[in-house]
Design a protein around this nucleic acid. Structure first.
Lengths: 351, 351
DNA sequence: ATTAATACTGAAAGCGCTTTCAGAATTAAC
DNA sequence: GTTAATTCTGAAAGCGCTTTCAGTATTAAT
C-alpha cells in the first residue's frame, strides 16, 4: 500500500493503465479506443478487435471521473429514500437499480430517516457528486431543493405519489384514493367508528394523503374522524401496538382501525393477541402496502397492495428515457388494489 | 431543456457556475477557492469569508467528476449486496451509508440476487466508476474479482464473515459458531433428530459455514445430519413452508428444525399452523438473525441475533480510516447471541 | 479513370478541478 | 532596520477521457 505525505490512502505503486496505453499498445489513436468504448459502430471491426485485445491484455478499466468530466455525464443516478432497511423501499430500490444497470448506470443512494433537513443535504451532496438524474420520494420539500435540482439541470422524478402541485414528474399511485378505498371497504361492512394510525404527518405528503382519503370516505357517509381516533406514531410495529392499546380504551371504542403503514397493522394484531381482543370479531384492522407478511399472519391482513417495485422500475425507465433524449409523456398513476383478507369483517353488534 | 444532436439530455442553457467564476467574483485565484473547500485551515479568515460569500451568492456546486479526476479520489464508496429488499441487508446498508456520509462520502450500491456472475459485473462497473473503497458480502468469489480490486488498489472489506482464507480484511461474526450454538441449544434440550433448512449453498460461504457449524455440533454428540434432513431452498418464507411440510413427512421425523435464514423459520411456523403441528410441542424451530418479527410472532422465535447494522457501521468506519491513512488492526469478530424464545423446547416423548 | 460521396481515423482542444512550486506578504528574531 | 523564518496566495501543469474537426482511405457513381 502507498500513502502520501499526510498518510492518506493512495494508489498502488504500479502505474495505472490509461486509455492512452491501450491506444499505444493497439497501435491506434486514443480517439479510436474511446470510440470503441462509446460508439463501437463507428469503428472498423478489424481495429475494434485489436483494441479489444489490448484492453483485455492490459486489463484496462476506464476512469469514471475522466469520462464524466469529458463527457459531462457520470452514468450515475441518485436516489434519496426515507429509509433503506425495510422491504418497502428496498424493493423499489432494488428494482430501480436493476433497471438502470441494464444501461450501465450506477445507483447512488442515501437515506433520510424521514428528515427533510437530511434529505436536503443528501440531495446537495449527490448533485455535487455529479449524478445524471435523481429519484426522490414524495413531493413535499422546501422549494430550494427543487431549485438546486433545476439549477443543475438534470432530470428527476418523484415516486410514491401520483400528482404534484408544482407539476413535477412523478410515478406512483393515488395515496388519497387508496386511503379512501380502505375506509369505504370498512364503511360498506357497516363500521361507523373508524380510527386511524398514521406515521408522522409533518413533511410526509403520502401520509397526509392517506389520512385525507380516509376522511373523504367518512365524509361521504356523513361521518368524521374524531381527534382521539387519530393516532400518530413513528413508523414501526411498536407504534402499532401502542396505538392499538390506546384505541381500545377510547369511548366510543372504534370498531375498525385503518393503519397508514403496514407495520402498524402487524403491531395491532400482535397487541390484540396479547390483550385477547378478537380481530375481526371485536375490531377490524387494515394495513397498507401488502408486504409479504400480510398474507401469512393470522388473521391474514386486509390491506392495499401498492406497486412498490413497479415504482422503482418505472422511475428507472423514465429517467433512462429522459437521459437518452426521449421526452416521455406523463404516465397515468399506477394501480393499487384493495386486498380483502381475514382481518376485516362487519362490526360487532352493538351491545 | 436542451438536447444535443442525438437528442440526448444535456445541460440547461444557462451557464454552469465553476470554481473559476467563484474565484473571479471573490477577487481571488481559483487555487484559493479550492483551498477554501478542501483545506480551509490554510486560508486566512478574511479571504475565506469573501469566498464563502461568493459561493453562496453564485450557488456554486463543485463538479464531482473534475474533483475526482484532479484529486484521484471520488469520495464514493461502493457496496455490492446480495439483495436490497430485506431489512437484513437493508439495515447494514443504511448504517454503512449513515457512517460514511458523516465524512462526505457517498454510497454506490448494487444488488446481485446471490449471483456470482452479477456480482463480478457490478464490481467491475463500480471500480470503473471510480469508487474509493468497496464493501462486499462474504469471501467466496472467483479470484479474478479480488485481482480487479487489488489492481485498482483501493481498500475494501468483506462483511458478514469473520475470517477468510486469503486474509482479506473482514468484519462480521462467526457463522460456523452461530450455527453450532443453535444446534447445541437443541441438543442440550435432548433433541436427537435435527434437520436443517438452508439457502442455496453454492457461492455462499455464510450458508455453508452455518451448515458446517450445525454438523460440528451434531458430531460432538456423535450424531450427524442425514441427507434427507437437509433441505436447500431459495431464501424466503415460501421455502420455509415447503421445507417444513417435507420434513414433517420424513422418517424418522425430525424433532427440531434449524433454519439457516429467518424467513425459513417464519415459513415453518406458518406452515405448522396450517398443518396443525405444535411448535415446540411436536417440533422445535429456530431462526437466524433475529429480525423484528422473531419476537412478535407466535410462538416467538428462538434464534441467533446477528450484528447486521453493526457490520455496516463498522465497515464504514474501517474504510474511512483506511482512506485517511490509518492502518487499522483487524478487529475481532463481532458477537452473535443466542436468543431463546418459545419456538424451541424439549423434544416430544417417544411414542 | 475520374469525381463525388461515404466511412474511418487521428490531432488537439478542452472538461473543472487539485496541487506543486515559487513568489509575495507577513511575522519573528536579532 | 535588516535578515530569517513563516504563512499565505497565485500561476500553471496536469488528471484521463471525449469529441470536434479536418483529413485520409475507401466505395459508389459516372
Amino acid at each position: 500500500m502507498a500513502f502520501d505525505s499526510e498518510g492518506a490512502f493512495r494508489d498502488p505503486g504500479y502505474a495505472r493503465v490509461t486509455l492512452e496505453d491501450v491506444a499505444r499498445s493497439a497501435g491506434v489513436s486514443p480517439a479510436t479506443v474511446s470510440r470503441c468504448l462509446n460508439t463501437p459502430s463507428l469503428v472498423r471491426p478489424a481495429l475494434k478487435a485489436k483494441v479489444q485485445e489490448a484492453i483485455e491484455r492490459l486489463e484496462y478499466l476506464p476512469n469514471g471521473a475522466a469520462r464524466a468530466l469529458a463527457s459531462q455525464r457520470s452514468r450515475m443516478i441518485g436516489a434519496v429514500f426515507p429509509s433503506l432497511d425495510s422491504t418497502l423501499f428496498g424493493g423499489a430500490l432494488e428494482a430501480l437499480q436493476g433497471e438502470i444497470s441494464t444501461e450501465g448506470y450506477t445507483l447512488v443512494v442515501a437515506a433520510t430517516s424521514y428528515s427533510a433537513a437530511r434529505e436536503r443535504s443528501h440531495v446537495q451532496n449527490l448533485l455535487a457528486s455529479g449524478i445524471d438524474a435523481l429519484v426522490l420520494v414524495g413531493a413535499e420539500r422546501p422549494p430550494e431543493v427543487y431549485r438546486m435540482i433545476e439549477r443543475k439541470g438534470i432530470p428527476y422524478v418523484l415516486i410514491w405519489i401520483d400528482r404534484t402541485e408544482g407539476a413535477h414528474p412523478c410515478i406512483g399511485f393515488d395515496n388519497h384514493g387508496a386511503g379512501q378505498a380502505v375506509a369505504r371497504h370498512l364503511l360498506d361492512m357497516g363500521h361507523r367508528h373508524i380510527a386511524m394510525v398514521s406515521g408522522p404527518l409533518a413533511e410526509n405528503d403520502r401520509a397526509k394523503s392517506r389520512l385525507a382519503g380516509v376522511r373523504t370516505a367518512l365524509a361521504e357517509r356523513g361521518l368524521s374522524l374524531p381527534a382521539d381516533h387519530l393516532i400518530e406514531r413513528p413508523f414501526g410495529v411498536a407504534g402499532g401496538r401502542e396505538a392499538f392499546r390506546l384505541l381500545m380504551s377510547r369511548q366510543p371504542r372504534p370498531t375498525a382501525i385503518v393503519c397508514g403503514s403496514e407495520p402498524f397493522a402487524y403491531g395491532a394484531i400482535f397487541e390484540s393477541q396479547a390483550m385477547g381482543v378478537a380481530i375481526p370479531g371485536e375490531v377490524s384492522v387494515t394495513g397498507f402496502d401488502d408486504m409479504w407478511l400480510a398474507a401469512q399472519i393470522t388473521p391474514s391482513l386486509t390491506t392495499v397492495r401498492t406497486p412498490q417495485r413497479q415504482m422503482g422500475a418505472e422511475a428507472g425507465r423514465y429517467l433512462l428515457s429522459r437521459l437518452s433524449g426521449k421526452e416521455i409523456a406523463a404516465g397515468r398513476p399506477l394501480d393499487f388494489e384493495l386486498v380483502v383478507r381475514a382481518s376485516s369483517g362487519p362490526p360487532p353488534r352493538e351491545g
